[in-house]
């Protein structure tokens, strides 16, 4: 339980540093942490990260700006990393298919780095965060519509170094 207390205190610190109005509050985030602990995921695993913090943030078309709702997810990731000190993560940046392949490789890299920079900015040591870009090569959702494209413009935090 020591780690959970640490997470909660970190979340409070992160919330204090944010002035963005209209963000999801910590009250909505904390229950998911409790659920994750209760479900008994293997500590430091991808499943634990996904359940306890959320592993994916989404972007607007041709943008690498971290949205307000993404900031909440990334603060939870930072707290989770603090609670799992041995874990190294790789941020995989992705793009939708509505661009050229090489531009999208660069855009995926830019998105992955935007997430990495945000995490470093809220206290995660940089040497724990790697990045990789998949451009448009690994869509999460198949389809030729805005719903699929939006689901594919993302950065996924993955436990482990680039293999």
């Amino acid at each position: 339980m020591r780690s959970l207390a640490l997470i909660l205190s970190l979340l409070v610190v992160a919330a204090c540093s944010s002035t963005e109005p209209g963000e999801p509050t910590l009250d909505t985030a904390v229950p998911s942490l409790n659920q994750g602990q209760g479900a008994g995921f293997s500590p430091g695993s991808q499943a634990a990260l996904q359940a306890e913090a959320g592993d994916t943030v989404y972007f607007a078309f041709d943008s690498s700006a971290i949205r307000a709702e993404s900031q909440a997810v990334l603060r939870q990731q930072a707290a989770w990393l603090e609670a799992n000190p041995g874990v190294i993560v790789t941020i995989a940046g992705h793009a939708d298919e509505r661009g050229t392949r090489e531009y999208n490789l660069a855009l995926g890299e830019r998105r992955a780095d935007a997430v990495r920079s945000y995490l470093i900015g809220i206290g995660v040591p940089g040497d724990r965060i790697r990045t990789i870009s998949y451009g448009e090569e690994r869509p999460a959702m198949a389809g030729d519509n805005e719903q699929a494209w939006a689901a594919n413009r993302r950065a996924v935090t993955t436990v482990g170094a680039v293999s």
């Binding site: 690498s64 090489e102 490789l105 660069a106 890299e109 830019r110 992955a112 780095d113 935007a114 990495r116 920079s117 990045t131 870009s133």
Partner: peptide, 9 residues
């Protein structure tokens, strides 16, 4: 070629 460093290509 393109080299990406720190998110910049």
């Amino acid at each position: 070629l393109t080299l990406a460093e720190g998110g910049n290509s």
